[in-house]
Every structure is written in structure tokens, then in C-alpha cells.
Simulated scan of single mutants.
Amino acid sequence: MATHPRSPHDLLGGGAVADVLLWRRRNASAAAVVGATVVWFVFERAGYSFPSVLANALLLLVAILFLWAKSASLLNRPLPPLPNLEVSDVVVEKAADHALVWINMVLVVGHDIAIKRDRKVFIQGILILWVVSYIGMLFNFLTLIYIGVMLSLLVPPLYEKYQDQVDEKFGAAYSVLSRHLDTIISKTGQSTKQKKTE
């Protein structure tokens, strides 16, 4: 049996999110599935729009807090326990760091295509964008998010259970695709060289 340098739990960050995605916290994972399904049903099947649901939820929350505060002052009860409602600098810095990594990855790909003229990256980019475009034609944005949430909750535990078999199959598929991609690149390179010599 092959040894793996990192487990799926480590690859997912090793924290509470990894526990939820790998169903080690079954209640939280089930709640995530139910919550995502309810949100998808409310917006997709019931026909509500996100701004109206958000406005109604905030209206209900404000009304409850106002009535609680008024009744607390009349009945000499404690005020509603509200947390400190501000975003810390640490949260903003972490979000900016994550966004910066993704933006830089996209810029590197763009640089490789435009400046280095890397055919392999160009063809990979075209294939990925075509697949995303094709899937986008089949589903609307909310359904795509719902499918992504469901896959993120179902695929990691299956991968953890069958990691060796999945790695073997993906390795074989990657080598086949890489060979085909190299063949396409070599043929396009030959055709451009032939045009230059003519």
C-alpha cells in the first residue's frame, strides 16, 4: 500500500472546516447539507430573490431586537446579548491574503499565455474555460453553487475512503491527457514552423 505525504484532512486545512467536509462532525455536516438544500429551494424553486429574502430576514431581526430591548427596559430584564459587530483587521488581512494568492495565480497564467506564449497553458486555459462555459449553459448560477456545496460535502469523505484507488485512476488519466496535450502542442508547433518556412 502506497504512503501519502498528506491526508485529505491535512489537505483541507486540518481544522473545523475539514472535519465538516469529511463528516467527522456529522451534525454540522448534515446541517450544512440541509441548509444548502433549503437555501437552494427558497431561491430556485420557490421563486424568491436574494435581496427580498435578505431584507425580510433583516427586518425580522431588527424588529425582534427592538421589541426585546423595549420589553427588557420595561420588565427590568437584561438587554439582548449582541456580539461586537465589527470586522477585525485580522479577518480582512486573511481575506486579502487569500484573494491575493488567487489573483496572482490568474496573472501568472495570463503572463504565461501572453508573454511566454506557452501553448500548453493556452490550450489548458481554453479547455477549462470551455468546460465552465458549457456547464454554465446547463445550470444557472445558484444551482451551480448548490452543486458545488453538495460536491464539497460528498466528494472529500469518498476520496478519504478510496484515496489509493482514486489517486491511481487520476494519475493514469492525467498521464493520458498529458500525452494527448503534448501531441496537440507538437502538431501546432510543426504547422506554424511549416508556415514560416514557406
Rank of each mutant, 00 (worst) to 15 (best):
H98N: 08
W68D: 06
A16S: 10
G13N: 07
A46W: 06
L58Y: 10
D19W: 01
S29Q: 11
V92C: 00
S71P: 00
V33H: 09
G14T: 02
A30L: 15
N27Q: 04
G47N: 07
A30R: 12
V39W: 12
V39F: 11
R24G: 10
I115R: 13
L21C: 09
S49H: 12
V62N: 02
L11I: 01
P51I: 07
P81F: 10
G14R: 00
A96K: 07
I128W: 08
N104A: 14
H111D: 04
V34A: 12
A31E: 04
E86Q: 03
L100Y: 13
V92P: 00
D89R: 15
P78G: 02
S133F: 15
L74Y: 07
W102L: 10
L22P: 05
V87Q: 01
L74F: 09
P81W: 08
S133D: 08
I113R: 02
A36G: 15
L79N: 09
A96G: 01
V108L: 06
L100F: 13
A28F: 05
K120C: 03
L65M: 05
F66E: 05
W102V: 11
N84L: 09
F66N: 09
V106F: 04
A55G: 10
Y48E: 13
S71C: 05
V38K: 01
L100S: 14
T37L: 11
P81Q: 15
L107D: 09
V106R: 05
A99V: 12
K94D: 12
L58S: 04
N104C: 10
R117Q: 15
A69G: 13
V17D: 08
V53R: 05
N84V: 03
N84H: 06
G15F: 07
L65G: 08
F122G: 11
L21N: 07
A99T: 05
L21I: 04
L65E: 07
P80G: 01
S71W: 03
L21Y: 10
L67C: 01
V34T: 05
V132N: 08
W130E: 14
L75C: 14
P80I: 03
D89G: 15
V33C: 04
V101K: 13
L60A: 13
L127C: 14
R45A: 12
H98K: 12
M105F: 07
G125N: 10
E93T: 08
V101T: 12
G110D: 06
L60R: 00
V53G: 10
V91F: 14
A30I: 15
L54S: 11
G47F: 09
S73K: 03
Q124K: 09
K120R: 15
A96R: 12
V108Q: 01
I128R: 08
K120N: 03
K116G: 00
V39G: 03
L58C: 02
S52E: 03
V90Q: 10
P51T: 05
L11Y: 02
W130P: 02
V91S: 14
V34H: 02
V106M: 08
A36L: 10
I126L: 15
A46C: 15
